[in-house]
Design a protein around this nucleic acid. Structure first.
Lengths: 283, 283
DNA sequence: TCACAAGTGGAATATTTATTCAAAATAGAA
DNA sequence: TTCTATTTTGAATAAATATTCCACTTGTGA
């Protein structure tokens, strides 16, 4: 490991922006090969972040040792230390959120305001991730299935219940025929007979997954019903018994998870389905 | 370098999506530690991309060698080969993401992606607003009332129902005694008698406000019960009949509103109350 | 309960990777 | 040109990292 001195050494750029600034200042007085490094680094930051000295050096047309000298010229101990800055940049957008979060955490204890800010920050982060990671094909096929269904059956217990009850409300308001499956155990099982193959089953469950929900979905799926699952991981047991899986990583604060992101996705789906139904019913 | 064989070996996932699919398929037959790796990898892909076996292993609570076995189970030669897939994902996404966003904005059409990103964008704005505009005094007094209450009665219909049902679940999980008021009209009215003055009533309603909710809150308030209202405007009829008002401006897309922001606030309150109760019950 | 298979931990090893260093090359000044 | 100060090179070295291997543990079916 590197010395602790570095942490307080003001000569070491601590983020990508200041590193870029440093490079541009020093580039005037740089000899040929170091300039070559500078150009390459600014043009291919991703490669610096992920590559090894050997790979990068050969791509930039210099020696590995030159790369080390380059990093040292900029104030770093060596190449590895500089590389971390490039890696931080690659992780990208998240850095601004984590920065604000540490500020919130530093600023003090569990005041209502700080809890709220923390949840809000994480929710925003989580929303970004949602848009970035969403499988639009899966989303489209979910919407198609829900649009084509005669009745949409909705199933979700515990934390997932608010999600499906909101879908029930929203879809209902748009004139889509929905059926909210409630109750547990045997009562729930009995509902299965009312789900026809022309229908769709929208099911949601999060870790720790409700066994009764998975089981009912599994039986419906086995009978040929379109099953759309909204869950938190592809490892979810529901993933194996559904036609389409929508994955969402919910924001959390300590051990507690909000529903912000999940609700955003659910609402979007409801609106898309409502929209699609409107067009098909008009024709 | 690895053997060329790997390039044509169909058993090796070549991109992040197929890797995820592979993990999902094989996770059934995975023993404890490998499952642990699988979960960690899916939850922290960035760390897999950038970390060393030692770092990742300790973060995931396994041995470095287990990480290697995990990669081999998925068909890779070793950890390093698997890591490349995660790195590829990391590089691709930033550029892809912005690219996708501009495409969505340009097209303007109501594709699933555009609806989702619009909701997500507005939700983020709305969350910012929430943190900025929240009346922390009101929030604190709401938390105090809910903490001091013997039983917390929860009331909300239509769009507000998911909010209170989520509070019901979350508070319940923290050991807080709650009572979710359901039904409409006369049935609802009858519940009033079970609300004691030592209790608190958490009520939520949004425009167009449910008359039955306002009426029940009004009666409870008249009888001296602490009423905490979560609504969308200080002009809400519920504001005049409650001890504390929490206001939230929800994100909307066209005529449709999400519940992201409201859920964020509700969760924060639940966590704060759970926290406060823990301390008071300990003393 | 036993025997056997499967899985796991962690030290030992092999490999890769960063870094150093001294010799060689280059550029600049007189 | 010659001398000196810089810069570069690339092999040598040190550090780190991934991977293997085997003793040990855990689980399983008879």
């Amino acid at each position: 490991m590197t010395e602790n001195l570095n942490v307080i050494n003001p000569d070491i750029p601590s983020d990508y922006e200041s590193l870029k600034a440093r490079i541009s200042t020093l580039s005037d007085s740089m000899p040929k090969r170091l300039l070559q490094c500078a150009r390459y680094a600014l043009a291919n930051p991703d490669r610096i972040a992920l590559g090894t000295t050997a790979e990068i050096a050969s791509a930039a047309g210099v020696q590995p040792s030159t790369l080390v000298r380059f990093a040292q010229t900029l104030g770093f101990d060596g190449f590895s230390q500089m590389q971390q800055i490039f890696q931080g940049q690659l992780v990208g957008r998240n850095s601004e959120y984590t920065e604000r979060l540490t500020k919130i955490r530093e600023s003090g204890a569990n005041t209502p305001g700080s809890i709220l800010s923390s949840f809000a920050e994480r929710s925003k982060q989580s929303l970004d991730e949602l848009v970035r990671q969403i499988d639009t094909n899966a989303m489209q096929s979910a919407i198609d299935m829900l649009t084509g269904a005669e009745t949409i059956h909705l199933l979700g217990l515990r934390r997932a219940y608010p999600v499906v009850s909101y879908l029930h409300y929203t879809l209902g308001k748009m004139g889509v025929h929905t059926n909210l499956l409630e109750g547990t155990g045997g009562i729930l099982e009995e509902r299965l007979q009312f789900i026809s193959e022309k229908d769709a089953l929208f099911v949601s469950t999060f870790s720790p997954y409700s066994p009764e929900v998975v089981e009912l979905a599994s039986k419906a799926f086995g009978r040929g019903v379109s099953v759309i699952a909204l869950t938190d991981s592809v490892l979810s047991p529901i993933a194996r018994v559904s036609s389409t899986v929508l994955e969402v990583n919910e924001a959390e604060h300590g051990a507690f998870r909000s529903l912000s992101t999940t609700m955003c996705l659910a609402t979007s789906i409801a609106v898309a389905v409502g929209d699609a139904r409107k067009w098909t019913s008009l024709s």
